[in-house]
Nucleic acid binder design. Sequence first.
DNA 1: AAAAACCGTTGACATTTGTCAACGGTTTCT
DNA 2: AGAAACCGTTGACAAATGTCAACGGTTTTT
Lengths: 193, 193
Amino acid sequence: MHAKLIAYISQYVNLPLTSEEQALIVATFQPKKLRKKQYFLQEGDVCKYAGFIVKGAMRQYSVDHKGVEHIVHLFVENYWANDRESSTMLTPSVYNIDAWEDTELLIITRAEMLDLMDKIPAMAQMIRLMDERNAIVNQRRLSSTISNTAEKRYEEFAAHHQQFVQRFPQHLIASYLGITKETLSRIRKQGTK
Amino acid sequence: MHAKLIAYISQYVNLPLTSEEQALIVATFQPKKLRKKQYFLQEGDVCKYAGFIVKGAMRQYSVDHKGVEHIVHLFVENYWANDRESSTMLTPSVYNIDAWEDTELLIITRAEMLDLMDKIPAMAQMIRLMDERNAIVNQRRLSSTISNTAEKRYEEFAAHHQQFVQRFPQHLIASYLGITKETLSRIRKQGTK
DNA sequence: AAAAACCGTTGACATTTGTCAACGGTTTCT
DNA sequence: AGAAACCGTTGACAAATGTCAACGGTTTTT
């Protein structure tokens, strides 16, 4: 089960992992299974774990005062589920994270992660690279959200996130894009003409 | 001129800077002055420098196919102007960064920064903390953009970024929020009633 | 001092997007 | 097998936001 994580790290970094390092990683990350709809993080709780998704699909969302869900992230295999603000500031999260499909995770606390980064150079490097890539992706998404129409945003999203379109229902994609499911349905209808 | 940068770093980090480290920082960061409207980065160029703003105000924006500018970031004193995607991937930037007021910067290349992070632990720590804080801020902004109406977004923005509201004209604030200047004007009018 | 550029506002109108209700076809649960 | 929940679509209408043109008051440039 940890093989996918090892592969993920190795592919991210040019430094190879020694077998001691691999053993330490295996010992630190705890396997966890979530059934569909089960919470990984619930609004109001502090996010204690980051989870590497070995198999499955998850979503992160807030719920507004009307009870409407707003999807802020979608995750599939090889993604990390985590509320950074909550886990680094130790504040109650405003988000929920739950399993959209039955999901297998490898979880780790922040303290454990800091420890691993200390002991395993490749891990520290991976985190740095991940953060960097993440910052770039967020910048692009933000830029697209304020600059483009809903239609253009969907086109871009579909082009770059084919697997999400196939894997999550449309109303989640719509919410992720900041529009309603009805609007997305109409956009798609137009687009095919 | 470098005093503000030293103070900025010290305030960010608990490790104090030795005088050798301070000297190295002073020797590495180059002062640069920009007149109002002058470019710091132009679309199509690779972003070679990150700039710490000692005095002044800047903006980062893209220009769409109709020639409309979309503000993605506003900067004032103690902010860093930089296109991360371009400077880390060495790709041509899709953004422009220019001075909104006459501005004094301390600039540094990516290579120099990596070198400083290597030699000065406090610098490495500061960058890590900055990245972390940055990721959180971006997450919040994204979340607000997809979840809230324009009115709510403006209220939140005004509450948390008073100095921007005072310093930049409304049409830039509007663009930053992803709306037109006319819409912002009407929102503000309503809000005061 | 004159001209030009910039800025915020307003009105009239067009476009986009949201809301609400209903439907039929799934899939899931019992 | 039957009931319930889920999902995407559609229509009618409402609300939010954009577009375009114009204005007067600034500030900046010449």
